[in-house]
Design a protein around this nucleic acid. Structure first.
Lengths: 301, 301
DNA sequence: TCCTGTGCTGCAAATACTGCATCGCTATCG
DNA sequence: CGATAGCGATGCAGTATTTGCAGCACAGGA
């Protein structure tokens, strides 16, 4: 990357002799000598005074020498920074995610990754599914965690996991003891749904209009904690993927029941990355870690 | 001096396209492309992401780009500094001088030189003759102004002027109306002499011992102004070269009379420079200016 | 005085570089 | 959906450039 002249000049000044410097540099003195003369002529200045016992820096030579050494120093620094990037010792990752994912697999995955690569920083932005997709497509996010059912052309999914949308309710709910819920059962209860049902395309809406049903939706919210508290202590039913309620399901404070709809069952969540440019090492490593975490999720229990 | 890669890389990042950058740089895209790939491989990192419509900097590439630009910036600065040195727009000159010279030709010469090259700075150190010689020999002074009768082996004299040592006295002094003074006349008066008469070799001492005379020296001093004031209003006689008393002689407040001694008449003052290394432009220019001033001195009046 | 070590240079061989032509790929446009 | 244009990457051959070996002149020290 840098001309060898920088090193040559530095060593020559250090040795005070072209021949000695050439010996140190494992080259012929004639070659070194010509390199020096050549640059001297290009700048129109002599860098060294020539004596019988070697060479001695001139004022101009001292100025140039300082420049050479500064450059070489800075180059070493850059080399370190680059190798940090290459070895994933440093870096920054922009993540866009659904908040359901942000609250489940992301914390653990990031903790694990952070243990291996402690100097890496993160920006985590929660957003609606189509926004996440868009951010990855625009390069505003390195990694997206969102539904991967209909991908943006310049986004591809690194790993996918089926996360069917089902009904979330309290254990004491009238439907809670069913094995599976039919779509038309839902019409009898107040629904709590994700805010993105407002967006132009909503899978839930698609299903309902297809079946000629309308959902008496009580609340649209983009806040998963709010949805949880609204479901708790009421007869309301949430329409969500299981992934945002893993803890509550495990502790039996909420219950998840599949809804018998092929379309809703098709829903998949994925690790989204741009298909335009290959991911830098750090981002690639993290996305693989996330993909592994996603595959490791047990959503069928 | 610097590898062309720095410019190439900068331009490529600027254009966001290898082919466009190659066009700007008047080269083939293949060559440019290979240069980039080559350094990428050397550092083990890609600098650019490749797209169908050009290239885009990676994180590592951004780091390297900043380094390239910093280096090129600094190089431009250095180029200016070097050209300043070459064109004598800037620089520093170390001068060692007898204080007799410091008070006569030096001020005018420096004023003239400074008018042409206003950014040059000076260090002016007054010293005894042998000290001046030593400083030039050691490289502690670029230019010396001192007696050039016996030169140090690694010092040479650029210009010389005969400045015989004579007797300095008041116009009313008993000897003042003589045309020339014999050495033995001096024994009748208090002498004021240069401090270097203490040094191992003193021309005045040589003469006196050769003639079997001893000088009743009242004052040895390295201060020329002190010598002047001691001579003024007394019968004392100073033994000095005329060069330190030009103004007083011109205004007739002091008088200079030659002493009839071949050795004392032989004394010469010169512009001394090292014979080991050729002088840088600024120093060379000033030494030539000083030599001219020295030759222009009228010491025979 | 010779002798050693310096910087410098001519010449032939080795090396690196350059540009042309061409490939595979992707985004765009009809 | 297919054609097209523009991009980066690469094989190849000719051309510069660089390198190292001798050998030169010169200066300082024994």
């Amino acid at each position: 990357m840098h001309d060898k002249f920088l090193t040559y000049f530095d060593e020559t000044a250090r040795q005070g002799s072209i021949r000695k410097a050439a010996a140190v540099l494992n080259m012929s003195s004639s070659s070194l000598n010509r390199k020096i003369i050549s640059t001297e002529n290009r700048l129109g200045v002599r860098f060294f005074d020539r004596h019988a016992d070697g060479v001695e820096l001139t004022a101009a030579g001292a100025v140039v020498l300082e420049h050479c050494r500064n450059t070489l120093m800075d180059y070493q620094r850059i080399l370190g920074a680059v190798s940090d990037i290459r070895d994933m010792r440093t870096g920054h990752v922009d993540i866009a995610t659904l908040d359901s994912v942000a609250l489940t697999i992301l914390p653990d995955a990031l903790k694990q990754f952070n243990a291996d690569y402690p100097e890496i920083t993160y920006t985590i932005q929660t957003a609606q599914p189509d926004e996440v997709m868009q951010m990855v497509a625009d390069g505003d996010a390195d990694i997206g965690l969102s539904f991967s059912n209909d991908l943006h052309p310049s986004v591809r999914s690194q790993a996918e996991k089926s996360t069917p949308i089902g009904a979330i309710m309290e254990p004491g709910h009238p439907l809670a003891e069913r094995d599976v819920i039919e779509p038309h059962d839902l019409g009898n209860y107040q629904m709590i749904r994700s805010y993105d049902a407002f967006a132009h395309r909503s899978i839930v809406n698609d299903v309902m209009t297809e079946l000629g049903l309308s959902l008496p939706t009580q609340i649209f919210t983009n806040s998963l904690p709010l949805a949880k508290s609204m479901i708790t202590g009421s007869n309301s039913v949430g329409l969500y993927s299981k992934i945002g309620f893993l803890r509550e399901i495990e502790t039996n404070s909420l219950r998840y029941l599949p809804v018998n709809s092929p379309i809703l069952k098709e829903l998949r969540i994925g690790v989204l990355i741009s298909s335009r440019s290959s991911l830098p090492p750090v981002q690639h490593g993290l996305s693989r870690r996330l993909a592994k975490a996603l595959r490791g999720l047990r959503l069928d229990s």
